[in-house]
Design a protein around this nucleic acid. Structure first.
Lengths: 200, 200
DNA sequence: GCACAAACAGACAGGCTTGACTGTTTGTTT
DNA sequence: AAACAAACAGTCAAGCCTGTCTGTTTGTGC
């Protein structure tokens, strides 16, 4: 598409993609900062610097926008995890846990948390969130197994890795209220020791 | 008060208490069933069988009602945990974990979850939730230590109990999306074994 | 029995949110 | 260049939610 014909061009497909991206990113930001409840379409369009008309053009309904944002968020989380994982040396359990702990304290996780809880009582959202969350869950699991150098063929190992991921999820949830970093650190310190013994 | 004077009496203090209780219970039910976002004062009053006027009389603002419901919910959670704990034999780790796992799958936990997430971005709610959550957190910790027969003077034991509680919180969160009971069971099976070894 | 206050009932207004709708600009196609 | 379609802009009405307000019933104190 967009055959060159001499003059400078700003393909509308590109503009469209950019606008949609800004809207989805603004949605994720709103989720993380003001929560699902206060995330209105008006607030999103203001934040994205997009007119309400343009917003309604690309996403006819709020559901459509949020569902698209869910997919976008999944990609972002996947990318952030992959990037963070690359910086972690293999077989250093405590470092792996630190990486996971940092993730659940990040804004993207908070946005995901908002969506989880909202999806619990919203069928449309649930249908969008469930499969994507399952995907990123599996991806994170695989990644963690690799970094820990764990042997999943041994009985119990798979469950311990799952427990580790559920633990950090729980820590992320606790972090929303009044959990301090120090407490998380101590818990993960001990968990790393226990995990190392159990996986040995 | 309310000196008997022959005829049957329905003290207004009693009526008042009953109405307030029904409103707070209805609030918790709404939180668990439709979520914080869709929990409107109108819905609550309908569900409680209380007129809007009476509702506004007892709780002038929505915040007042929700804050009162938080306190109520804390009491309910505390009572449910204490009751469930009484049915668990001491030193049977798997049974203790089952009890905790059941709790995080219950409606009261879901209501608490809604409040947690809402409180993250709502200062008023946060001020009400934080201290109470801390209280019930400590209570649950003490209770778990007792049931496990754990010796907290030994290094790492305290952190392992905390990790256990955060783990079940994470499992409760996962349960809202698409987590099946079987998966939870396997994870807790394995964690019970690991915990027993670590505490031995 | 009477005055008073608390519990209760329901209508009403203001504000916010959502999505429909009309009009304008900008890129694409022939 | 002209016709067309997509992107963009902003207004408007319907609906819901909250909290105020007025009026009614019921228990309490004198």
């Amino acid at each position: 598409m967009a055959r060159v014909s001499g003059t400078l061009r700003v393909p509308q497909e590109e503009r469209s993609r950019a606008t949609r991206a800004r809207l989805m990113e603004a949605t994720v930001e709103c989720l993380a900062e003001v929560g699902f409840g206060r995330t209105s379409t008006t607030l999103i369009s203001e934040r994205a610097g997009v007119s309400r008309g343009a917003q309604l053009h690309h996403f006819p309904t709020k559901d459509a926008l949020v569902v698209a944002a869910v997919a976008h968020l999944t990609d972002v989380r996947g990318a952030e995890l992959a990037t963070a994982a690359r910086a972690v040396p293999v077989r250093r359990t405590r470092d792996v846990l630190r990486m996971l702990g940092d993730h659940v304290a990040s804004p993207v996780f908070m946005a995901a948390l908002e969506l989880w809880v909202a999806a619990r009582t919203d069928p449309t959202l649930h249908a969008a969130v469930e499969p994507l969350e399952q995907r990123i869950g599996r991806q994170t699991h695989r990644l963690t197994v690799e970094l820990l150098g764990a042997d999943e063929s041994r009985p119990g190992v798979r469950e311990l890795v799952q427990a580790t991921l559920d633990l950090v999820r729980g820590l992320g949830l606790a972090a929303t209220i009044g959990d301090d970093t120090a407490r998380r650190g101590r818990i993960l310190d001990q968990w790393a020791r226990t995990l190392d013994e159990a996986l040995a």
